[in-house]
Design a protein around this nucleic acid. Structure first.
Lengths: 124, 124
DNA sequence: GCTTTATTTAACCTTTTGGTTAACTAAAGA
DNA sequence: TCTTTAGTTAACCAAAAGGTTAAATAAAGC
């Protein structure tokens, strides 16, 4: 009963990535948009189970959902991954002591827009 | 009794990173090696709780522990982070790649049209 | 030897997670 | 209209997560 400091986005992203089924779903989405049923089909588990996994991913901001009639088209949203990889790279580089090594990779801006939303003050 | 596909290392790493307290511990370790007590001191929670968090991090391979007498010196081990960041980067780049192609198409319609999704971009 | 110090382990509790089946909503098709 | 199809929501369950306090282990200090 001591916590409630709001679930950080990073919490949600890393938690979402910590399950192999969910990572599998994300991998599958590399091939492009897919419906819930299509995503569930190869995954020997019930449809509601898959639906839940998708919700976890969606809550972490890793999915986009386009609803058309009764069909939900799911696609990947890579944006939150940037913050996650930023956190990791920052620490990895500090620990390894090689600051310049993959710095370019992290700072690599999206080809279209100059990163506008990853400059938040965080205190983790 | 239905699962047993073995807990992948990636599972453990991402799960370890999904908790703000644990990320805080890792951040603290940027300053260098520290004892369990020192790590616990600023963290308003009991020592056993911290001990458990450290074990989660250790099981994920993110910590090294040097025991000297009754004192445990904890330090960060960045190695498993590489695999994690590899997974993320691989997916992020794939998605951003396909998103670009998609975006190129979506962004095409004239600036007056507010691009509702179930209306096909018909160009006159 | 006794006591303090550093830390883990044990036992317990509550909340969350990951799954199930059954019931519901709503669009599509006959 | 009636039925199928696509998906979510509800209710439930077992196990895991994250915390607690109390007990155990073992090194250090007196």
């Amino acid at each position: 009963m001591r916590r409630a400091p709001q679930p950080l986005l990073l919490d949600l992203v890393f938690a979402a990535l910590s399950d192999a089924t969910r990572r599998g779903l994300l991998s599958r989405l590399i091939e492009g948009e897919a419906t819930v049923g299509t995503l569930a089909e190869p995954l020997q588990m019930s449809l509601p189970a898959v639906s839940k996994h998708l919700r976890v991913l969606e809550d972490a901001g890793l999915l986009k959902r386009r609803i058309e009639g009764r069909t939900h088209y799911i696609s990947a949203n890579p944006k939150p991954l940037r913050e996650a990889v930023n956190w990791i790279e920052r620490h990895r580089q500090m620990w390894e002591g090689s600051f310049d090594r993959l710095a370019a990779l992290v700072e690599q801006p999206p080809p279209e827009a100059p990163a506008k939303e990853h400059t938040k003050p965080k205190k983790s």
